[in-house]
Design a protein around this nucleic acid. Structure first.
Lengths: 156, 156
DNA sequence: TTCTAATAGTTTCAATATCTAACTATATCA
DNA sequence: TGATATAGTTAGATATTGAAACTATTAGAA
């Protein structure tokens, strides 16, 4: 149980610092500024074609009104498109525009480069450890979300 | 370099999800609601006794006015104390109140428990991998901050 | 078939968080 | 000593988010 305690503690201390680097880069690369929630929205829609608003809200951890507003802004900027779903007229179908795909790709590229800058001095075996850990963590934190609801986002 | 790419990509995808869980717990446990920046402020001051405002701002990735306001709110709630520094009257010295320490302890405890809930099903060897990875990542993301400035936060 | 309940999303209002510009006070340097 | 640098505050503007209220659509019960 000591390891479990230590993992929880380290995660709590490290995750915010990682996010700080990510946020800084999202906001500093040339071109379109994206907030973290905007970036996460684009990523979610990219990974979940035909997504509607509610699963997006759930993924973001935001309420429906907040998510609706967020999407509004992105629609206004022609980054995503929003249309009525074919199977259920209450639902929206969200999609990235071409512009949105470009912006997402640029943001990911720049931010991943930044992270690579930070990580590049690590030897390969340590990168392997980190990669393995991330592969363990990712499903858990997606899984946590699944437990809350039954809607499972599809992952590439 | 493939591993480096993959690490950067996974980090970019996983860190926000981890933060989502942390944020949700910070906001849901009984007692005092803390925002992530507030929590990070308390943690920083706890780990850096006698800290002034500028290194805190730097740590948070916020501007001085924003940090000043954030601290204002916490001072008003008697969570931290603020006084003029002895060596330099331009500088503040920030400290946790007793109340602040209680609140931080409670927030950490609850959030760590939440993370433990998520992680507990992992076998010990996998926890070891995660722990090792976090121990590798943490200094890097603190180090990144050091590179930006010369002021090195002391760590327990 | 009709009516009620549930669901998806929007709008309004209020609160909170953050940045920029401008400013004050203090310390350092030429 | 005066100019410059540094630490922090205030005011104003903008962005983000939740709660309450509302509309439209779908599903389920009678």
């Amino acid at each position: 149980m000591e390891k479990l305690d230590e993992c929880a503690r380290q995660l709590l201390d490290t995750a915010p610092q990682i996010m700080r680097s990510i946020r800084a880069e999202m906001r500093s690369h040339r071109g379109h500024d994206l907030s973290i929630p905007q970036f996460r929205t684009l990523t979610f829609i990219h990974q979940n074609p035909e997504a509607s608003l509610s699963p997006l809200a759930e993924h973001l951890g935001l309420t429906l009104p907040s998510t609706s507003k967020l999407v509004d802004g992105l629609v206004n900027e022609k980054i995503i498109s929003r249309r009525e779903s074919k199977e259920d007229r209450r639902k929206l179908t969200l999609a990235l525009t071409k512009n949105g795909e470009d912006i997402l790709r640029a943001a990911r590229g720049a931010t991943q480069n930044r992270l690579k800058d930070i990580l590049h001095e690590l030897p390969a075996d340590e990168l392997s450890v980190i990669l393995r850990a991330l592969n363990l963590l990712q499903p858990l934190f997606m899984k946590g979300m699944k437990e809350a609801k039954t809607h499972v986002p599809a992952h590439s």
